[in-house]
Design a protein around this nucleic acid. Structure first.
Length: 462
RNA sequence: GUGGUUGUAGCUCAGUUGGUUAGAGCAUCAGAUUGUGAUUCUGAGGGUCGUGGGUUCGAGCCCCAUCAUCCACCCCA
């Protein structure tokens, strides 16, 4: 049998993993800096926990898990009926009742609802785990990918909304990725929908507006007209879509357009408040007001965020927002939440394309002890164990081979030093320490070897 | 889910209107060189041409299906 892995899934070798860990370590460090604590949830959730949370399209993309024991003769009748339901496009508990998680927000909501009594509110957690979507893979889209989420449950404070913008800003500046952090407020979009006479049908308008960048103003107007908007409404929509300028200018313009609407006023007020918090603390704020930012997920109620990498063609590399009824669907009403997500895999792709990974990431083991023969390598093994006691990562070339080959092996493995202890050095209690990066070497006493390597280790840790 | 692209050695790729035994570079291994990363030279191994069918005297090449890849749509991180 020829080995293979399922479509849209990937293995990660050492080089890539070191780069990925660099990204997640950076994100995690910032999450911790802002006072979030870790959480992990299972790869699978009960199917009913997930369905209906991501819209009709989202439901189709949930990876479902087939129940075991479908061939049980005692259950043949219900199984057959279940299959019938599946064929009709319905879900059936007798066939599938579990699914792989689709994002980290809903499992978080589920966790908060299940542990509401025990959690200290506001509860701030971060979570870095893979999620799965049955999408067709393409550029920047995978079937298994990592999200790095931070959310807070149990506070209406705009400090938290503002903090998430700061987290985005901090992380991307540490990673040296140029980004635009877009911010908007759902209440403003709701006001627009209301003013256009749509009210409850807001979701369809939201999806159209979201596509502005891609399909252009003309198409957006066309599609909105198809929703049944009056001419006057379309006029308002066009004015709305064309709002531009600085953040302050945009806010002023939208106030003029939708300031009479109660929801609109509230949204503008929130946005103003959050923005002032951010701008007072960043000289050059990467946060940009974008009223055309919509986001498809329908649980958002206030602030929404999306992060776009500059100079690269790539979908959003992060997104999030406020949802004022986080746990309502799980029986605990009145718990607000805000949160953001980083798309690790897309961030990776962007950094790869812009060549932003530091080269120092690819440093392997510190030392390779070269094999100089049977007696010599036995001796070297002992020295090596001493080094390991000192916390220095090292390995011994197991086989007796030509030095040429051993050195090439070390270079490929990105090992920093080679140590040669042949019969001569054994006699004199010395070693040849070879810096493979610099292509230089010196003969030193074994005791000195420990000293040099310990210093080297400390300098790398700083 | 819809549409398109590509698939030949470990890697990157040639391969003529369908015609003998499918090639190159790099990499690997062995030797020139039994204590040192380069260069050079010599030699070797490695392919059921993604998989399964079909057309044909004959298929890497044409047809169908299937799997994977990349890309666009939908949607999204």
């Amino acid at each position: 049998m020829k080995p293979s892995i399922p479509q849209g899934n990937r293995d990660f070798g050492a080089d890539k993993l070191r780069q990925r860990k660099y990204i997640t370590n950076t994100i995690e460090a910032v999450f911790l800096l802002y006072g979030f604590e870790p959480l992990e949830t299972p790869a699978m959730e009960n199917l009913e926990t997930l369905t209906g949370k991501y819209g009709a399209e989202g439901d189709k993309l949930i990876f479902k898990i087939l129940n075991n024991g479908l061939n049980n003769p005692a259950k043949e009748q219900v199984t057959r009926e279940g299959i019938e339901n599946i064929l009709k496009g319905k879900s059936d508990k007798n066939i599938t009742e579990r699914a792989l998680r689709y994002d980290l927000t809903i499992p978080f909501a589920r966790y908060v609802a299940m542990n509401y009594g025990q959690l200290t509110m506001p509860y701030k957690r971060y979570q870095i785990q893979p999620v799965w979507r049955a999408d067709r893979p393409q550029r920047g889209r995978y079937r298994e990918f990592y999200q790095c989420d931070a959310d807070v449950a149990g506070t209406y404070s705009y400090f938290s909304d503002a903090e998430f913008a700061c987290i985005y800003s901090e992380v991307f500046s540490r990673l040296k990725i140029p980004v635009a952090i877009k911010i908007n407020n759902r209440k403003i979009l709701y006001a627009l929908a209301e003013t256009c006479g749509l009210g409850e049908a807001m979701q369809s308008l939201v999806i159209i507006i979201d596509k502005l960048d891609k399909i252009g103003l003309k198409k957006v107007v066309e599609e909105s007209a198809a929703l049944g908007l009056s001419e006057k409404s379309i006029e308002i929509l066009q004015q709305y879509l064309m709002i531009s300028g600085s953040n302050a200018e945009k806010l002023a313009a939208v106030k003029k357009l939708l300031g009479n609407n109660a929801s609109g006023m509230k949204g503008i007020e929130e946005l103003n408040e959050i923005l002032s918090l951010i701008e007072e603390n960043f000289k050059e704020s990467p946060v940009v007001v974008d009223f055309n930012l919509a986001r498809g997920l329908n649980y958002y109620t206030g602030t929404i965020y999306e992060v776009q990498a500059k100079d690269v063609v790539m979908g959003s590399i992060g997104g999030g927002g406020r949802y004022d009824d986080l746990t309502g669907l799980f029986g605990i009403p009145g718990v607000p939440g805000v949160g953001i997500s980083f798309g690790l895999d897309r961030i990776y792709d962007v950094m790869e394309e812009l060549n932003l990974f530091p080269e120092t990431l690819q440093q392997g083991t510190t030392i390779l002890f070269l094999n100089m023969g049977e007696k010599e390598s036995r001796y070297a093994f002992g020295i090596m164990q001493q080094c390991r006691q000192l916390g220095i990562s090292c390995e011994l070339y197991f086989e007796k081979a030509k030095l040429d080959k051993q050195i090439k092996y070390a270079l490929k493995r990105k090992i920093h030093f080679g140590v040669i202890i042949g019969s001569e050095e054994m006699e004199s209690k010395e070693a040849v320490l070879k810096d493979l990066n610099k292509n230089s070497q010196e003969k030193i006493a074994i005791s000195r070897l420990y000293e040099i390597l310990t210093n080297h280790k400390i300098s790398r840790e700083v």
